[in-house]
């Protein structure tokens, strides 16, 4: 096996590890051209490095450490995860309350839910009429909560439409009186919201 100067061997190692700057690489290149032993060490080291890199990466990336780790961790999960379980009980209670709220909606909403289909506005002179967006009304089962509050799971988007109508008489140049029917429609959209309660008699 080729024997070379320690300093030159160091330079070769640094070159293999990408630790040489441009000048040092140039100097080493010149040395390798005129020193066949150094060239042999360089080539041999490159070959071993390449094999070692492949072998090590293959070895250390093989196996299912990550997956096994997940399964291992899953059974120690309880030990570490005990502090995470604090929300499970209140979460379950909250879910139960929400489920109860879901089934409690006012009878007026029930009426709308049963009758209304699609965006249907009833025309009333000067009166806002609630319009139910299709498919967004909660299932209505029964009554109300104590305290005059009506629980609902969510409030759907509400569209109020007001139609003003006026009939005006205008005398024409021919002496006749013409009636002009004027209708003005105003639409107000109120975005929906999540679970809440609000008083009975409120404009839902």
């Amino acid at each position: 096996m080729a024997e070379i100067d320690d300093n030159l061997e160091r330079q070769i190692n640094r070159a293999l590890d990408g630790e040489l700057d441009a000048d040092e690489r140039l100097a080493l290149g010149r040395e390798l051209i005129r020193n066949p032993q150094a060239r042999e060490v360089m080539e041999r080291s490159e070959q071993i490095d390449a094999l070692a890199g492949e072998a090590l990466r293959s070895l250390l990336s093989d196996g299912a450490t990550g997956d096994v780790c997940s399964s291992q961790v899953s059974h120690v999960w309880g030990r570490r995860g005990y502090h995470r379980a604090w929300w499970l009980l209140p979460g379950a209670v909250a879910a139960a309350i929400l489920a109860m709220l879901w089934v409690y909606t006012p009878s007026s909403q029930k009426q709308l839910a049963e009758n209304g289909t699609g965006n249907t506005a009833q025309r009333t002179e000067g009166l806002a009429v609630g319009v139910k967006p299709a498919g967004r009304w909660p299932t209505v089962r029964s009554g109300r909560l104590p305290g005059g509050l009506v629980p609902v799971y969510y409030r759907p988007t509400r569209i109020d439409r007001a139609i003003d109508r006026g009939v005006y008489g205008v005398r024409g140049t021919d002496g006749n009186i013409y009636l002009i029917d004027v209708r003005r429609t105003r639409t107000h959209e109120q975005p929906g919201s999540n679970a809440r309660t609000w008083p009975v008699g409120g404009d839902m």
């Binding site: 070895l59 250390l60 450490t65 961790v73 995860g81």
Partner: peptide
């Protein structure tokens, strides 16, 4: 904060060098 999936991801990313250290010290693949 107890995020198991973050831990899985962390293991995947750091597994190489951790195993490298183990192999380096232990010398038993």
């Amino acid at each position: 904060s107890g995020d198991r999936y973050a831990f899985d991801e962390f293991v995947r990313r750091q597994s190489g060098w951790v195993k490298g250290v183990i192999f380096g010290v232990l010398g038993d693949r």
